[in-house]
Amino acid sequence: MPTPLVVSDVAKSFTMHLRDGVTLPVVAAVSFSIRAGECAVLGGPSGAGKSSILKMLYGNYAVDEGQIIIQHEGGLIDLASASPRTVLAVRRHTIGYVSQFLRTVPRVSALDVVAEPLVERGEDREGAREKARTLLAQLNLPEKLWALPPATFSGGEQQRVNIARGFITEHPILLLDEPTASLDAKNRDVVVDLIAAKKAAGVALLGIFHDLDVRDAVADRVIDVTAFAAGKIAA
């Protein structure tokens, strides 16, 4: 089975220049890989660096050391050292990301927020909107909200817009940062179904789920992040 994502010996720390340059190690020697059609879950207590790992994989955090090898457009690239332009291309075509919070843009409707990643990939706007409607309906977002900008939505509503935005594309790698955190049981089940469908489609998924029921329902494997604790290496 293909392995679209390989992480090897990645390390990350923060240097706080505003606090006399103190260095906060986050993770070190992070090594794992995800196969196509597999859903791996990062496990470990809060502050272990789960979110940081996910953000490095999306290019949102810089990587101090190591490599993040991904299959992108038929080749292999190291995301850890890729140029910003390459990272943008990877985000457009290879790695999708569902964050905890929706970053809203003023005056853009929920429907267009969801459809945007498809439009960016070159699909026509109406076709993209049609897919967005299907997903929003599946996630039980009241239809009267679709035309409104999500800024004023409740947390759960925003999260569903966010999930729809992340799941609408066919990225071969999908990163999930607590997508079900503020959802009720019914919508959690919808997300579990969506993840199952992605797995069946051969997508490699990596997620953080604090909700144990959801985690058990989707995870093929749990990667224990405490093994990558930076302090351990230093010690």
């Binding site: 923060f14 505003l18 949102n60 955090y61 810089a62 910003p84 943008l88």
Partner: peptide
């Protein structure tokens, strides 16, 4: 310099950290 969200979410230079904070 870099990706906008990278620079803003993980600022590395002292001055950028000051700006972001």
């Amino acid at each position: 310099s870099g990706l906008t969200d990278r620079v803003l979410d993980d600022p590395r230079a002292p001055y950028t950290q000051l700006l972001v904070s």
